[in-house]
């Protein structure tokens, strides 16, 4: 294997990719939209409801009324002390509510402690160790206490986002390889290329490198943007930067390149068997299935997603990659390709 020959092929391929708007759009838009849109669409709402860590300095006067064990509907409650009650469609202001359930309630300047909140709007209040919060907007209302559970939920959620950063390197090569190999076929440029003193291994390695480098560049760049954005959004509320966790590091550094390699070798095999760019892309896209499978396993309780489980999966994937690379080289038979490709 002469690396300079392989690099010549890779450099030519990358120059062609740079002038192909479809490849460029896929290469830039898909990863960057995931890196930017996902944090803004999914993390930002969480961040807005996350505990600030610091309760608001609310100094409530002694209550004018005390309510206990009642069901209140369509009431305006000001300067009250409410406990063990169910309140629907009401307005609560400057009050203290304990161990109650609020449904469709607007709360302002109050202290809610151990309260279940549904479909309500909470403004300028302290929410202390809440029960379930659903369908509600907490505006300038820190959740105080119960942070560890919240943080765990956030980290679990962030781990599931990893799926996208494993799908990206599996999905991009499907498109690029189809242009690289089937494009060569359609362009009828393979015949003069194969007539040069270049081995099959050098050609394949060069083409694979040309797909691998931009794919991983886009994946890692989008990963870094995602991490920075998530940290920017969550650090003020969590009090620490949640990413990258060891799971993220192992997945991005090890698993993503392995999925990219798997996708490239699979697509080499596919595109040497089909003669249509779309057919190649559709078949090649199936390579994302193992990535989805990996992230389905924790949902069914088969494994816990963590650095160790990912390392184990990466080891298996490495073995599959070696076999696939061997197969790709064996199946890339120049004579058969020239004779059978129309």
């Amino acid at each position: 294997m002469r690396f300079e020959k392989a690099w010549t092929v890779a450099a030519k391929e990358m120059a062609e990719f740079r002038s192909n708007k479809y490849v460029l759009i896929t290469l830039l838009l898909l990863p960057l939209s995931m890196a930017v849109v996902m944090p803004l669409a999914l993390v930002l709402p969480i961040a807005s409801q996350a505990p600030s860590g610091e309760p608001l300095p609310l100094d409530l006067p002694p209550p004018d009324m005390t309510i206990q064990g009642e069901t209140l509907v369509d009431r305006v409650l000001v300067n009250a002390s409410i406990s063990d009650s169910v309140i629907r469609g009401s307005v609560i202001r400057d009050s203290r509510v304990m161990n109650s359930t609020l449904v469709g309630v607007t709360v302002e300047g109050s202290i809610l402690e151990g309260v279940t909140i549904k479909n309500s709007v909470i403004r300028g209040s302290n929410v202390i160790e809440p029960g379930e919060i659903s369908g509600s907007n907490l505006v300038n209302s820190p959740i105080v206490g119960g942070e560890s559970e919240f943080v765990n939920v956030i980290l679990l959620l962030l781990d599931t986002f990893l799926l996208f950063f494993v799908i990206i390197p599996a999905a991009i090569p499907a498109l690029m390889a189809s242009y690289s190999f089937v494009g060569e076929k359609l362009n009828k440029s393979l015949e003069p290329l194969l007539a040069t003193p270049t081995t099959d291994g050098e050609l394949l390695f060069g083409k694979a490198l040309a797909i691998f480098l931009p794919t991983m560049g886009a994946t890692w760049l989008s990963g870094v943007i995602f991490i920075l954005l998530v940290n920017l959004l969550l650090e003020p509320t969590l009090g620490f930067a949640p990413l990258p966790t060891p799971t993220w590091l192992v997945a991005l550094v090890l698993l993503a390149p392995l999925f990219a390699t798997l996708s490239i070798t699979a697509n080499v095999i596919i595109s040497s068997r089909v003669s249509d760019v779309r057919a190649s892309q559709q078949l090649g896209a199936l390579v994302v299935l193992p990535a989805i499978f990996l992230f389905m396993l924790p949902l069914f309780g088969v494994i816990t997603l963590g650095p160790v489980s990912i390392l184990g999966f990466a080891g298996g994937l490495l073995g599959v990659n070696v076999v696939m690379a061997f197969l790709a080289l064996r199946l890339f038979r120049r004579e058969e390709i020239l004779v059978s490709w129309k």
Binding site: K12, E16, S19, N20, N187, K188, E191, P192
Partner: peptide
């Protein structure tokens, strides 16, 4: 020189 030029058109 094959029957079709087979050049890289974008380059």
């Amino acid at each position: 020189l094959p029957e079709a030029p087979g050049l890289y058109e974008r380059l």
